[in-house]
Computed example of a mutant assay.
Amino acid sequence: MTFSSHSPLGKPTFYADQYNASLLFPIARAPQRAELGLAVSLPFLGADLWTAFELSWLNARGKPQVALAHITVPCESVNLIESKSLKLYLGSFNNTRFTDAAEVLARLRTDLTEVAWRGAVVQSSVGVKLVAAELFDREPIEALDGLSLDRLDLDCDRYTPAPELLSSATLEAPVSEVLTSNLLRSNCPVTGQPDWGSVQISYFGPQIDQAGLLRYIISFRNHQGFHEHCVERMFMDIQARCQPHKLAVYARYTRRGGLDINPFRTSYPQALPANHRNARQ
């Protein structure tokens, strides 16, 4: 996998502290989706749910303001947003004066929508919600719902994605299950830094072999891929190997650089999960 020399990943960094939307860097989703056999028409819906924990700016009188930002990037956008560029972009707000939080929110929504759809017609805007400091204590910490696969005592020896580990009871009656694991790890494709996460698989269909599914999740341990692409690979592999009638895959990755990224992909229309962090985030 190659990336443009303009990407800030893996390079010495200059931290701007005056607003600069040009710091945002798009990465096209299409090349890795092509590796999964995906073209223009996607077999899933969903979004990438971000939380920005390090957002600050100055009000009109120069007094610092702080907030959390919940960001929702539609999965149908042509680009994902490179996380280091988003960190640098948010840092550029630090010594910039804004009239109020509404102006900050409008700038965020406009700039993030532009970079997510750069090179294409905008179909849906990036969602942005600011949480003021006085509301921080209302931000819940929750574990992913579901039956933990981590309870299984098993041997593991595959640490690159191994979809052949997946299977399901296709000749038996369908079941509805929600399964979770905290043993997900993948790695940044540029820096090689580990990305730790938890994953939730919800499905209706032939019962998935749980031991094989856990081994499959663990097999991402040495894989290099962005969070969004890892979840889409999981979705496609489970769909192909286990043949569920309905499927949703949701991963919550621990934060890096003040940002966490939590991709959600579903085979059928449903509400997005609430962007509630887990204890590791």
Rank of each mutant, 00 (worst) to 15 (best):
residue 61 R to W: 15
residue 177 E to A: 12
residue 11 K to D: 01
residue 246 K to W: 09
residue 11 K to W: 07
residue 53 F to G: 00
residue 201 I to C: 04
residue 169 A to E: 14
residue 184 L to T: 01
residue 215 R to C: 05
residue 140 P to H: 06
residue 75 C to Q: 02
residue 46 G to F: 04
residue 276 H to S: 12
residue 62 G to P: 04
residue 134 E to H: 13
residue 34 A to I: 07
residue 171 L to A: 13
residue 125 S to I: 11
residue 12 P to F: 09
residue 37 G to Q: 11
residue 132 A to D: 05
residue 151 R to A: 15
residue 163 P to S: 12
residue 68 L to K: 07
residue 272 L to Q: 02
residue 11 K to N: 08
residue 107 R to D: 03
residue 212 G to L: 06
residue 140 P to L: 13
residue 269 P to T: 12
residue 167 S to G: 10
residue 138 R to Y: 15
residue 154 L to Q: 09
residue 111 D to N: 11
residue 74 P to Q: 13
residue 264 F to E: 00
residue 76 E to P: 01
residue 109 R to E: 14
residue 153 D to N: 14
residue 65 Q to N: 05
residue 99 T to S: 13
residue 264 F to D: 00
residue 174 P to H: 08
residue 215 R to H: 04
residue 255 R to K: 13
residue 139 E to K: 09
residue 10 G to Q: 05
residue 89 Y to S: 00
residue 92 S to A: 08
residue 219 S to W: 03
residue 92 S to D: 11
residue 1 M to R: 01
residue 58 L to P: 03
residue 272 L to S: 06
residue 71 I to Q: 02
residue 253 Y to A: 11
residue 173 A to R: 09
residue 25 F to A: 03
residue 84 K to R: 13
residue 119 G to M: 09
residue 270 Q to A: 15
residue 119 G to A: 06
residue 28 A to L: 11
residue 47 A to V: 05
residue 251 A to P: 00
residue 146 G to M: 08
residue 39 A to D: 14
residue 153 D to R: 15
residue 269 P to Y: 06
residue 206 P to E: 09
residue 171 L to T: 10
residue 86 L to P: 00
residue 114 E to K: 07
residue 64 P to H: 10
residue 33 R to W: 13
residue 196 W to Q: 04
residue 243 Q to C: 07
residue 49 L to C: 03
residue 15 Y to A: 12
residue 140 P to Y: 11
residue 167 S to H: 10
residue 89 Y to M: 06
residue 100 D to M: 08
residue 122 V to M: 03
residue 215 R to P: 00
residue 148 S to H: 05
residue 68 L to P: 01
residue 247 L to M: 09
residue 50 W to S: 02
residue 278 N to D: 03
residue 267 S to Q: 08
residue 24 L to T: 00
residue 256 R to E: 08
residue 140 P to F: 13
residue 16 A to T: 11
residue 265 R to S: 10
residue 121 V to I: 15
residue 265 R to A: 10
residue 20 N to V: 09
residue 136 F to Q: 04
residue 119 G to Q: 06
